[in-house]
């Protein structure tokens, strides 16, 4: 069975990916697809919203006669990631204590 990924965790996953290095759309959607089974049509609004909220910004780089839009984590985005990580830590502990209780 599949567990639906809550928005906060999608946001956190993208921000964490970008915390390592700037990257472009396909790398992000591919990672989310492979690891969480989330489609690119789900990722588009996520990226759009994160940009609108100032958590990430974009810049274009030429590649083989077209452009690739790169995403970069902002300072606010870094702070937001820290918050999500903390919330996730609490959540994970709570669920673990419930699921792994014998």
């Amino acid at each position: 069975m599949n567990i639906q990924v809550p928005t906060a965790l999608l946001d956190g996953s993208v921000l964490a990916l970008l915390a390592k290095e700037d990257t472009y759309g396909y790398i992000i959607t591919k990672a989310m697809q492979d690891l969480l089974g989330v489609s690119e049509s789900t990722m588009y609004p996520v990226l759009r919203r994160l940009k609108k909220d100032g958590y990430l910004e974009t810049y274009d780089q030429p590649f083989e006669g077209r452009i690739r839009r790169y995403y970069r984590l902002t300072e606010t985005g870094q702070e937001h990631l820290t918050e999500i990580k903390a919330a996730w830590g609490d959540f994970r502990q709570a669920i673990n204590s419930l699921l792994e209780e014998k």
Partner: peptide, 10 residues
């Protein structure tokens, strides 16, 4: 929507 994975809101 084709191949749309639903996501919980909020």
């Amino acid at each position: 929507s084709k191949k749309h994975t639903p996501v919980t809101e909020g």
